[in-house]
């Protein structure tokens, strides 16, 4: 299975990106997006961090093993998708 890296963008400057060096093996882009949304939901619901004032301003920048950007998943998508259900 391909390895995807979920870098967390929480601010505009270079320090505003938390690099994921470990990655997760997932079946494909759709599974990677589902994973990003599930992680985002869990962070929004359960985690309080000084570094993040508002989870909804955060975005996952998802790259493949070659370091190419595959997709971006804004945390706000967790709300949109749930509303559509």
């Amino acid at each position: 299975m391909p390895l995807y890296f979920f870098h967390l963008r929480h601010g505009p400057d270079p320090n505003g990106l938390a690099q994921d060096l470990e990655g997760d093996e997932l079946a494909g882009p759709e599974a990677a997006r589902d994973h990003a949304l599930a992680v985002a939901r869990d962070l929004i619901a359960r985690v309080r961090l000084h570094a993040v004032r508002d989870w909804f301003s955060c975005t996952f920048e998802v790259t493949d093993e070659g370091g190419h950007l595959v997709m971006t998943v804004p945390f706000s998508d967790t709300v949109t998708e749930e509303d559509e259900d």
Partner: peptide, 26 residues
């Protein structure tokens, strides 16, 4: 220790651990 390991120890998603580590390092 890996971030995945800390994620389990602290009971939070790895992305949260990575961010917290970045903040402590900064």
């Amino acid at each position: 220790l890996t971030h995945e390991f800390l994620s389990m120890m602290l009971g939070v998603q790895r992305a949260g651990v990575t961010l917290a580590i970045q903040n402590l390092e900064g």
